[in-house]
Simulated assay, not measured.
Amino acid sequence: MLNIILFGPPGAGKGTQSEFIIKKYNLTHIATGDLFRKHLSEGTDLGKLAQTYMDQGKLVPDEVVIGMVDEKVKENPNVAGFIFDGFPRTVPQAEALDALMASKGTPISGMVALDVPVDELEKRIKERGKTSGRSDDQDEQKIKTRIKVYYDETLPVANYYEQKGRFAKIHGVGEIDAIFKQICDKIESFR
């Protein structure tokens, strides 16, 4: 089973690239933002709790996120693998994800990180905000907070996987197809 973490700051292109990766490798997509919105639309307690953190541009507590991810993995027992988009965001989440997937006999294959300069991230998120309908894509302060949280709290996850020899960094600026080809080359190296 192929289990890939697609990593990078908000606006790096994870959503765009994950669509191509899903099609090529027939992976099941797990995006924590989607999980949060699903729980919100269903009115679950986990969803309401997650929204209070998301509205402030902050990270949702690990136990909430891991519970949602575990539920999604259990719902898909016979798949070719998973692509984790925007998760894990902290080293404890990475450790918990590794333990969760190992307990199911299907460890994380590797992490591909999209590296994009901050000014480009801000520009992309503002542009996306025109059509996404997400309030956090339209508020300049929330955008800056989300990017700062990534660099302060999330970036250490890359070091975690790098130390395990399961990490690849891709420059995330340029033609979408060229970036996708680089991602595929790295994914193949994890197999």
Rank of each mutant, 00 (worst) to 15 (best):
E19L: 14
R191G: 15
K58S: 06
T16E: 03
K148P: 00
A99V: 13
I143H: 01
I5S: 10
S109W: 10
S189G: 14
M54T: 11
E122I: 13
R124P: 01
Y53D: 01
F84W: 10
I143S: 01
D137F: 02
T52F: 00
V73P: 00
R134L: 06
T28V: 15
K24W: 04
G129N: 11
K24A: 13
G165P: 05
E95G: 09
F82P: 02
D85I: 08
A168H: 05
K58F: 00
E175H: 02
V116P: 00
A94S: 12
E122G: 01
T145G: 00
L6M: 11
H171G: 00
C184A: 12
F180M: 08
R191K: 15
A96N: 08
T16G: 06
E95K: 14
M68S: 09
A178H: 03
Q93C: 06
T52Y: 00
M1Y: 12
Y161G: 13
D70C: 08
I66P: 01
D70M: 09
Q163R: 12
Y53W: 08
M54N: 04
S135L: 08
S109M: 08
A12V: 07
L46S: 10
I83W: 09
K48S: 05
A113K: 12
L97Q: 03
T44G: 04
H171R: 06
K148C: 00
F20D: 10
R166G: 01
T32G: 04
G129M: 12
D34M: 05
F87K: 06
V69N: 04
I176Q: 11
G15K: 06
N76Q: 10
R128T: 14
F7Q: 03
Y161Q: 09
M54K: 06
V173D: 01
E162L: 14
E63A: 13
F36R: 01
I4D: 03
L100T: 07
M54Y: 01
G172W: 03
D136H: 09
I66S: 04
M1V: 15
K23M: 11
Q51F: 02
T52I: 12
F167W: 08
N76Y: 04
E127R: 13
F82L: 11
I66V: 14
D70P: 00
G33W: 02
Y53A: 02
P92C: 12
L100W: 11
P61E: 07
R89P: 01
T145M: 02
F190L: 13
E71Y: 03
F84D: 02
